[in-house]
Write a protein that binds this DNA or RNA. Sequence first.
DNA 1: GTGCGGCGCTACATTTACTGTAGCAGCATG
DNA 2: CATGCTGCTACAGTAAATGTAGCGCCGCAC
Lengths: 108, 108
Amino acid sequence: MPKDVQPRRVRGSRSGRPVMALLDLLGRRWCLRIVWELRDDALTSRALRAACDEASPTVLQARLDELREAGFIVLGDSGYELTPLGRELLETFLPLHRFAERWSRQTG
Amino acid sequence: MPKDVQPRRVRGSRSGRPVMALLDLLGRRWCLRIVWELRDDALTSRALRAACDEASPTVLQARLDELREAGFIVLGDSGYELTPLGRELLETFLPLHRFAERWSRQTG
DNA sequence: GTGCGGCGCTACATTTACTGTAGCAGCATG
DNA sequence: CATGCTGCTACAGTAAATGTAGCGCCGCAC
């Protein structure tokens, strides 16, 4: 049973505007990365940890709980995977991939 | 003169893939928010602070240095503003706005 | 059944990051 | 020279992330 994670008015966002809440959620360490790493396949928590440069399991678990709470991921039979909503989210920032390539070429 | 901010291999990203570096940079506190708040007009550092729920100037300054280093923002005559590259970045995640609205309606 | 080896998840001490308040120097305007 | 703004910094306190270890659980081979 997932531990009770209360919503706890997202950190640093007292405005109440949804985009702020989202920006704040995604602005936590490893959060974007987790969604990114789940783009193709479901990953077990340990595989996800490996994919995220061996990030500490403590914070990874916290992010997984938060993302689950937000409805972006779910724990299925083959590990964590994006929900339809989570996939939608991923697609909104998939263009970042191409942008990042251009960016790194520009800054060296 | 901007204080010397060494690149310091972006935190938590030892992979070297540009998208990871970008995801990591954007995953720092207030980073996405700053870019977001600069979407329309240039803002002075103090106006930006006000826009960001009075975030502490220490970390705000750190993010501004990093974003400047990355070439996304620049300090002009009327405050901080997005560079063309920064505007490009903003546009890649502008769809988040609409997504956030749908998301908040879905989760209540 | 007993011992793997994997799973999701947690404890805890240490280190790092962020907060909040205060205040600096610089540059205009009066 | 005083006022008021700017970008930026110091510093003590608090919150978050790291790193290492290990829990209980389940399926499977022996």
